[in-house]
Amino acid sequence: MYILVINAGSSSLKYQLFDMPLDKPLCTGLIERIGTNEAFIRHKILTVDPTQTIERQEAIADHSAGLQQMVELLSDAEIGLIHSADDIKAVGHRVVHGGERFANATLITPAVKETIKDLFPLAPLHNPINYQCIEIAEKTFPNARQIAVFDTAFHQTMPEYAFRYAIPESLYTDEGIRVYGFHGTSHKYVSEKAAAWLGKPDAKLISIHLGNGCSITAVQNGKSLDTSMGFSPLAGLVMGTRSGDIDPSVIFHLIAKGYSADAVNNLLNKQSGMQGLTGLNDMRDIRKALEAGNQAAALALDIYAYRIQKYIGSYAAVLNGLDALIFTAGVGENDSAMREQICANLDFLAVYLDSDKNRVATGDVREVNRSDSAVKILVIPTNEELEIAQQSFDLLETA
């Protein structure tokens, strides 16, 4: 069964084509920096030896244009893997916000689409893009089953004392205001990998997902106990364009100064974080600025790492111990300097990073801690696409 997985981020589009139940993709693709004139496309065909890779840089205005590029590559007369749209039996979509309604993979119906649309205000950088990708996929693959896998689903195991805010109960019961958490598909995948690596199903883990969006989750027994993102993906760590945690009084102060609510929302979601601190939202560009002596970049990296350290300390307390730190996603997997900065000054947890291993380690699960570290430090490439494909396949098998 050919299942195409579409994983759309705020400025990226990842996709993989699977022939399920095999867990190895036939091809993978990544489109980065969508919305710029320097978007980058990498399409890998894994059914040939050696792997065939197509790379190019060009202007891609939005996710619709990115999906069109994906379809052209998949169906290309010379390198394509499908003969027609009917070859695709299901399309699995990553959808960021499912509210309390969705705790599992779900067949997409008009009612499900309306719920996703209703949740736009809670995930303004993602749910509209996820919705757009669903609509394009429905037209492109009209006979395929469309399936949504929600980032919020994994965090439905949080205890009520962790997901409730200290506000009037009616705001929870009537308005659904609570901690939902995000990046759940990623946190679920890497925490299961870590538990298997450790040979400890009940492992106490802190999973750190660092990309353009960032979140950190406390996991035990394979269940999410607490997570940094909250009612929306705005809360928690410093991110590419999002502020992360901020005193709510700042919002009231800005509104009193004449900002509209929409302007403040746009400011905190799209103009803050590393973008607000440096004018740049891509960590690779910020590293280049640091190398050029940019002091704003140096401060921004200090703030970014410091916020993560604070959460590590608090989640070690939540777990009452710690077996492993997990680094995943673009920055977590590839920025060895940031991993080193985050793991510094964690002696009280007996967390000791091995600088040499950290710089050169390779593999599906990379252990970068010193031998005397009481806590394992693991770098695990996330594979949200495989997780989505598996959940989609399981849903169709039981439907």
Rank of each mutant, 00 (worst) to 15 (best):
M1A: 11
N7P: 01
N7I: 06
G9K: 04
K14I: 06
Y15K: 02
L17H: 02
M20F: 08
P21S: 11
P25Q: 06
C27M: 12
C27Y: 04
C27E: 04
G29Y: 08
L30K: 12
I31P: 00
G35S: 03
E38G: 05
R42W: 10
R42G: 09
I45S: 00
D49K: 15
A59H: 10
L67H: 11
V71T: 11
E72Q: 15
L74W: 12
G80L: 07
L81V: 12
H83G: 15
H93Y: 09
V96N: 05
A105F: 07
L107N: 07
A111Y: 08
T115W: 14
L119P: 00
L119R: 02
L122N: 03
L125N: 01
N130Y: 12
I134Q: 05
I136R: 10
N143T: 15
R145T: 14
R145G: 06
Q146C: 11
Q146S: 11
V149G: 06
F154V: 06
H155N: 04
F163P: 00
F163A: 04
R164I: 11
E169D: 14
L171T: 12
G176W: 06
I177P: 01
H183K: 04
G184D: 02
G184K: 04
T185C: 11
H187M: 02
S191T: 09
E192R: 09
K193V: 07
K200I: 12
K200S: 07
I206N: 00
I206E: 03
S207Q: 08
N212V: 10
V219C: 06
L225S: 02
M229V: 09
F231V: 00
A235S: 14
V238C: 08
D245L: 08
I246D: 05
S249N: 14
A256G: 12
G258Y: 09
A261F: 13
N266K: 15
K270M: 13
Q271V: 08
G273R: 04
M274R: 06
L277P: 00
T278H: 07
N281I: 09
I286V: 13
K288T: 15
E291M: 14
N294Q: 08
N294M: 07
A296I: 10
A300V: 02
I303F: 11
A305R: 05
Y306L: 05
Y306A: 13
S314C: 07
N320P: 01
I326F: 05
A329T: 02
G330R: 01
M338D: 00
Y352W: 13
D356A: 14
K357I: 08
R366D: 03
E367L: 13
V368K: 02
V368Y: 09
R370H: 10
K376H: 11
I388D: 04
L396Y: 09
E397R: 15
A399L: 15
A399R: 15
